[in-house]
């Protein structure tokens, strides 16, 4: 499990690094071409926008793995250890439910619907761009299992300590 997580982390990290670098290059190119060569280009804006959507979706999956999404933890952190872990486990479950139902089920349905819609400029199915929603979410589910397992271990080892 640990090694699978490391591999997924690596993949997602490099996807984000590549996309952000590529977006910077594309948008800069767009300005240069328009300003210095006076030839407006409509492709760069659209391509970089879709790269951005992908970066956000895959990037936020990565952040779920790190458990660094913004939250308000001060109440939870004041709880006794065991209660805190249980609340954390429930919180993870809520993330997983939202991910499975909205992002994967709803997202997949939308993606299929969008496969017949073509992007006006690029002439590729919108569904391909949309796929980032359900596909990135599969990684969130993996991280959910990983985190729950870890929290569960923490919970049981805590209660062991309590007994000793």
């Amino acid at each position: 499990m640990e090694s699978i997580k490391r591999i997924i982390d690596k993949i997602l990290a490099w996807v984000c690094i590549f996309l952000l670098a590529a977006m910077t290059v594309l948008v800069t190119y767009q300005v240069v071409v328009r300003y210095f060569f006076n030839s407006p280009n409509s492709y760069t804006e659209i391509v970089s926008k879709y790269m951005f959507v992908w970066m956000i979706m895959y990037g936020s999956a990565y952040v779920f793995g790190l458990r660094e999404h913004m939250n308000i933890a001060f109440v939870r952190d004041k709880m006794p250890a065991k209660a805190r872990i249980i609340v954390e486990m429930i919180g993870e479950l809520i993330i997983a439910l939202f991910t499975a139902i909205v992002l994967i089920y709803g997202g997949y349905t939308q993606m299929i619907d969008q496969m017949v819609q073509l992007d006006a400029t690029l002439q590729i199915p919108m569904g391909i761009i949309y796929s980032a929603v359900p596909v990135s979410s599969i990684f969130i589910l993996f991280y959910f299992i990983y985190t729950e397992k870890k929290l569960f271990n923490e919970l049981t080892s805590n209660s062991m300590e309590g007994r000793i």
């Binding site: 990290a13 984000c16 952000l20 979706m57 990037g59 936020s60 990565y62 952040v63 999404h69």
Partner: peptide
């Protein structure tokens, strides 16, 4: 780049 992508993902998600 990775740190920036992470921070952006948090806000924009």
């Amino acid at each position: 780049l990775l740190d920036s992508a992470k921070m952006s993902a948090i806000v924009i998600f």
